[in-house]
Simulated scan of single mutants.
Amino acid sequence: MQPSRRSVLTSLVLGTAAFGVGLSRSFALAGESLAVSHTDAEWRAMLTPAQYQVLRQQGTERAFSSPLLNEHRKGIFACAGCDLPLYSSETKFDSGTGWPSFWQPLKGAVGTTTDTTLSEVRTAVHCSRCGGHLGHVFNDGPQPTGLRYCMDGVAMTFHAA
């Protein structure tokens, strides 16, 4: 019996994600006008290959690979694409997942979209100024919000207070 197209695609997607390669899917926010926009060539020139893969193609960095995971100083985590302040260090917590996690973004800093790339429905998080993909938000975080903004560290920079 031959495997179905769906099972083959699911295996490819899960295999790709397991190796931390991420998915190569162009990222566009339908119906949103962004304050910062660039051509694909400009983004490629501005960002490192890893930043481009996450911010512009919705990739995922390997768990436990980001230096920002162990960043514990006071300060602000900003978008690596446009430097918009996204998260305060006061909302960062150790989720044990291998990615920098926060229980709340700064007001107006992020937007969300529905992501169905891994055969499940998740909520993707993007920068509200440039549309860069940052990670995903889940409902298993600490109080007071109960949310876990699980961010790719390569998609952010840190500005110490």
Rank of each mutant, 00 (worst) to 15 (best):
C79R: 00
L86M: 07
A63G: 12
F27W: 10
Q53Y: 08
A63H: 03
T16Y: 10
E42A: 08
Q57L: 09
A63D: 14
L34Q: 10
N70Q: 07
G15V: 11
S88E: 08
V36K: 04
L9Q: 14
R5W: 14
H72E: 14
L55A: 01
G81C: 07
R73W: 00
W43K: 10
N70F: 07
C82F: 07
M46G: 11
L9K: 11
T10Q: 15
Q53V: 04
F77M: 06
W43P: 01
Q57I: 04
Q57K: 15
R5T: 14
E61I: 03
T39N: 07
R6G: 15
A35Y: 09
Y87M: 13
I76Q: 05
G15L: 09
G31Q: 10
L47P: 00
T60N: 06
S33F: 04
R73P: 08
A50S: 15
P3Y: 09
Q2M: 14
I76G: 02
G22P: 02
Y52W: 03
V13R: 11
L84S: 09
A63C: 05
F27A: 10
L23N: 07
Q58F: 00
R56N: 03
Y87G: 05
S26C: 11
V54Q: 01
E42V: 07
G75L: 03
R56S: 04
L14S: 13
E71F: 01
S37P: 06
L12A: 10
S4Q: 14
G81Y: 01
T10A: 10
T60D: 03
M46A: 06
E32S: 15
E42G: 05
P49V: 02
F27V: 13
C79K: 00
P67L: 09
Y52A: 04
L86P: 01
H72F: 05
A35E: 06
E42T: 07
S65F: 00
R25W: 11
L69N: 01
V54G: 01
R56C: 02
L86D: 02
T48G: 04
G20C: 10
V8P: 12
Q2R: 13
A41I: 05
H72L: 13
F77T: 01
L68F: 05
H38V: 04
T60R: 10
S26Q: 11
S37E: 13
T39Y: 13
P85L: 07
L29V: 06
T48D: 08
T39R: 04
S65A: 11
A35F: 10
E71A: 06
S11D: 08
A28K: 07
S26M: 11
F27G: 10
P3V: 12
P49C: 04
A35P: 00
D83E: 12
P3W: 13
S7E: 15
C82I: 08
L68N: 02
G59S: 06
S24P: 12
T60Y: 00
R25E: 03
